Amino acid sequence: MTATEQYLIDTWRASQQGAPMPPPPGRDDVAVLRSLRTYEQARAVMEGRPARHPWRAALRRILVRPRAC
């Protein structure tokens, strides 16, 4: 069963029981990723490492890599 199918069943069940509707799937995904990034940056500072943005470092490695001709 997919997350969407489960959401539809839960929504129907909540409407039948008068309970609050469940959140749609994927609603908080961005917030979870942001909190994980913040946690990793805080951990880096506590360990004495620079708190750089991990995506920027990955993009720099990809974009600055010399191309083989």
Score class of each variant (00 low, 15 high):
19 A>L: 15
21 M>Q: 10
33 L>A: 15
24 P>S: 08
54 P>C: 07
36 L>W: 09
26 G>R: 07
27 R>E: 11
28 D>Y: 13
40 E>N: 11
31 A>L: 05
5 E>C: 12
31 A>C: 05
46 M>Q: 13
19 A>T: 14
49 R>L: 15
69 C>T: 04
35 S>P: 01
68 A>Q: 14
26 G>E: 04
36 L>V: 10
8 L>P: 07
31 A>V: 00
52 R>M: 10
14 A>H: 04
6 Q>A: 08
52 R>I: 02
40 E>K: 10
51 A>M: 03
43 R>W: 02
57 A>M: 05
44 A>F: 00
42 A>F: 01
24 P>Y: 13
39 Y>L: 08
1 M>S: 14
14 A>R: 08
62 I>M: 11
1 M>C: 08
52 R>K: 11
66 P>C: 07
18 G>L: 03
53 H>M: 10
49 R>I: 06
38 T>Q: 13
8 L>V: 15
20 P>S: 10
57 A>P: 05
11 T>I: 02
38 T>C: 06
54 P>T: 03
24 P>K: 11
57 A>W: 06
32 V>S: 02
2 T>Q: 14
3 A>I: 09
1 M>T: 13
13 R>Q: 11
14 A>W: 02
69 C>L: 12
34 R>W: 00
63 L>F: 05
64 V>W: 04
46 M>H: 07
69 C>H: 10
34 R>G: 01
56 R>W: 13
23 P>F: 06
58 A>S: 08
34 R>K: 14
38 T>G: 07
10 D>F: 02
41 Q>F: 05
29 D>V: 00
65 R>G: 02
30 V>L: 04
16 Q>W: 08
58 A>W: 10
18 G>K: 00
63 L>E: 13
62 I>R: 14
12 W>T: 15
31 A>P: 00
21 M>A: 12
60 R>Y: 00
23 P>N: 04
68 A>M: 12
53 H>A: 08
5 E>H: 07
34 R>L: 10
34 R>F: 02
25 P>N: 08
30 V>M: 03
64 V>N: 05
46 M>A: 14
53 H>W: 12
